[in-house]
Each structure stands twice: as C-alpha cells, then as structure tokens.
Design a protein around this nucleic acid. Structure first.
Lengths: 189, 189
DNA sequence: CTAAAACATAGACTTTTGTCATCATTCACG
DNA sequence: CGTGAATGATGACAAAAGTCTATGTTTTAG
C-alpha cells in the first residue's frame, strides 16, 4: 500500500530522489474502520494524512448542529486541517473516515525535519497548500451562486464517482442543500 | 502613502530590517480611478497588489454573465490572483477597483529577487497564501449553509464597514444572493 | 451644472428550497 | 445470516428566494 504514496511522491519530485526510502519511512501507516475521528475541532491537528485507500470527510457544524462538509478527500490525495497543522492553533474543522481507510500520516516535527534534509520536499508543503487553496477558491466561485440543481449537475460532471460512492446525506451536506431536496432533484435528471 | 505599506511590513517582519528601503522601492506606486480593471480572466496575473487606499473586487462571471464576487479587499491588505501569479497560468478571476485607489504593485521577477535577497521576505508569500486560504475556508464553511438573512447578519457583524461603503448590488453579489432579496431583507432588520 | 445612467426600494407573482411525516429499502455489525 | 438502525424516496405543505415591473433617488461623467 506504501506503493501508492511512493508513486505519488515520485510523480511530483521526480525519481532521482536517492533518499526516497527515508522519506517513505517518515510516514506512519494507519488502518481505520469507517466513521472514525481523525480530528475534532478545538484539538490541534497533529498530522498531515495521505489517503492511500478510502475516503475522508472534512466538516464543521452549523448553529443547528447540522454538518456542513467542506471537502471530501479520496485516494491519492492529501488531507489535513492545514491552518491548525501549520500554526499549532486549535482546529476549526473535524475530519472523519467515511469508509475503512489506509492512511499514511506524518507529524509536524518529522515533516519539518524532512523539509530541512530533503530540499525537494520543501516544495511539498507549498504544493499541498496551493492545491488546497485552488480547491477552495474554485468551490466558492462555483457554489456560492449555483442553484441546488446546478450543484448536483456539477458534481455529476466533475466528481461523478462521489455520486455512487457516498450516501445521499453526505453528498447533500457537501453540496450545501437539504437531503430531501437532493433526493427529489436527483430523481428528475 | 508608502507609510501604510512600510507599517504593514514592519508589523510582520519586525523593524530590524536594514534593507527595508530596498524592499519598499521594489513596489510600484499606482493611482487608479474607480471601476478600473487590474486583471481580466484568461490574462496572466503579473502583480501582487498592496491596497494602501481604496477597495478592490475579485470576481467571476457565472453562466448567465452575472458577477459573483469571491472577495472584497480593503486598505492594508494584499490582493492578487495568487494561483495565476504563482504559476504563470491564465487567471480564472477578474479584479477591478471599486473606488479610486492607491496601490503598491510588485511583479513576479522582483518578488522573487526579494525572496532571495531578504530572507525574512520569504515568509511573506507563505503568509499571504495562508491568509488567503484561511479566508476561503472560512467563507465556504460559513456561507454554503447559511440563509440569505444569516449571510447579511454575518456581514453586519464581521465586516460592518462594507455595508455602508459598498453598493447593494456589490454586497449582494458578495453574499451570493439576489439584489432585490438583499434590499428586502435589509429593510426588515 | 445637467442629462443620462446607475442604483435602491417596493409590490405582485413564480419558482425553488426547506420541513415534516410516512413507508420501503438497504446495509452494518454482531 | 438475520435484525435493528440508518438510509432513501415521496407527497403535502410552508417558507424562502428569485423575477419582473414600476417609480423615485442618487451618481457620475462630460
């Protein structure tokens, strides 16, 4: 399973990385059940996770304690609450597993040591941050003005696997619409 | 007016910066009228702007050519289309002045030279990126699930000056609601 | 200073979205 | 592999948001 991470890293940093094994051994391999908490808001986010298998949900609670899902992360992607991880301040978001997962986790001291010893790895944090930012900007620009129906169409076009893989409840909270409305509109497509 | 920028930088990097004048002289002072385009989507974003006076709007067009405003930037803040600026790829967003402005602009080659010669300045890009990211995450988590009325209340609580300073049309496009609805709901507060 | 354009508000109406209750189905887990 | 809890679909209704028109006001650019 570490192969997935190995592949991911060489795709980005090239395979002329002679200390690749050292990099890989800096990660802790974690297997989880579904519905397991990796981070609770107000705790400090200690890890950056690489998802080798499974699916994570990043979410907050609104004033009525409904979940609002900011992001869904599937295989071959990074997941963290970067602002807490980077600053050591309490996290504002929660992270949980949606499915049984295989993750590779790296804590902050190890991450920083890696950045110092492996020059190319220095780019990784910036890359993760930039990708996360791009993702957020995109989500604001598309979603804030879209109707419920258009949000569903967007999901079917750009992340179709989520439609089949996740529960309606979760998708609805990701799209920011009511689950009954989602059910109704989906039937009319 | 350069004082505003000077203050901003010393607040962040400390005032033990002996080449501060060199840093400041790397910026180009720009005065603009209102309603002036600083960036059009599909062009490459060449500058990072520091807003010393005035107000900028970052926006996209939806499929019906309505503007959706992702961000409003006022004095003492940075503004750019970072993803385009950083990568050299075409910008996905537009930036325009909402009021007559005084800006300090820095282009990418100068920015990079600064990062190499002034070690502390290296943090600036990361800081701007992190602040932008935090802003976006916050906006998603609050806005996606809020009703029109709650969005207005949010604005009145956290960015009250925008309520008096901007046109209803612009505020509505920032909040992601219809301008008529905004007018109606505002009257009922 | 003035004419034209842009803006703000309001009413009437339509469409969309949310809520609640019910029932059928599926799926996780012992 | 069976069962209880979670999920998904649907109808009826309520509430919220969007649309369009009209009218009076404010801005702005020449």
């Amino acid at each position: 399973m570490i192969e997935v991470l190995k592949q991911h890293i060489t795709n980005r940093l090239g395979n002329d990385l002679d200390n690749l094994d050292m990099v890989l051994s800096s990660f802790k391999h974690i297997k989880t059940k579904r519905n397991q908490h990796l981070l609770q808001q107000s705790d400090v986010c200690k890890y950056v996770y690489f998802v080798a298998k499974g699916c994570l949900q990043v979410y907050v609670y609104d004033k009525d304690f409904n979940e609002t899902t900011r992001d869904i992360i599937i295989e071959d992607n990074w997941c963290s609450e970067l602002l807490s991880f980077g600053s050591g301040k309490p996290a504002l978001e929660n992270i949980r597993t949606v499915e049984p997962c295989e993750l590779f986790a790296i804590d902050r001291p190890t991450f920083q040591k890696l950045m110092e010893t492996v020059p190319q790895f220095d780019k990784v944090y910036k890359q993760i941050l930039e990708a996360s930012y791009a993702n957020s900007v995109y989500r604001i620009n598309t979603f804030v003005s879209l109707t419920a129906l258009d949000r569903i169409k967007w999901l079917m076009e750009y992340r179709p696997m989520l439609m089949t893989r996740l529960s309606s409840k979760l998708i609805a909270s990701y799209l920011g619409i009511n689950k009954d409305v989602f059910s109704r509109l989906k039937a009319k497509l």
